[in-house]
Amino acid sequence: MGGFGDGFIHKNNPFTGVEILTIPDPGGVNGPGIGALDVDPDDCSLWAAVYRPIFNQQEGIFVSRIYNLNPRNGKVIKTIDIPFQGDPTIDGNDTLAIARPSDLGGRKVILTDAGEIRTELFAVDVNTGAILKAYILPVGVAGIDEDEVTGDLIVTDVFSSFYNLGPAPYGTIKGTLDNLSHSVEDISLNQPRRCGNECDDESSDHHHNHHSPHEESSDESSD
């Protein structure tokens, strides 16, 4: 199922947009595309949510695929599939953040709605792919990021505002900022530096395995 992907993930200057580095999107040119990105603050590896859903023939369901990538060369470190939410013919996943929710004991998880502008946000174990918890948000989201310092979750509802939903369980709007009627998909906050050269090591590429919430292998081929 094609999307709008140009087949690459681009690194750019944060204030001018000048391109610095290009790595391959595992989905390829005009593949399902990338809907959301985040950098793991512990090892600076890249997490990418595939935008368009992928049909898993073994399970007979559409899944939202999430990649953990080496940010230097795009090599796939890990693949996680979770059930897609919403209409697979028109929707895509535009929401992903690496976080350590306080109500999960600081455990590192992927936060994603696995769909488009949804109020149910899943906490997915970064190692097993298991869904650990589902949070119910006060607004549908199309982009999120966690502030590492406070644990607050900053989100966009696409069409009108950014919100601070506070720390887990993210059920209360602490603040609102008008986005000036822009239409926003995916957001990112600046974060303090805690990682650097980990992904220069080729040994970080060897964890190429697949996980689903049911611990079954998934088919690498899409479409």
Partner: peptide, 22 residues
Amino acid sequence: VPGNGTHGNGRGVAFDPSDGNI
């Protein structure tokens, strides 16, 4: 518009704390 104006159809953005780029 990232990439000197060539990447206007993108989705997904992440700040990289290792070098301050996106």
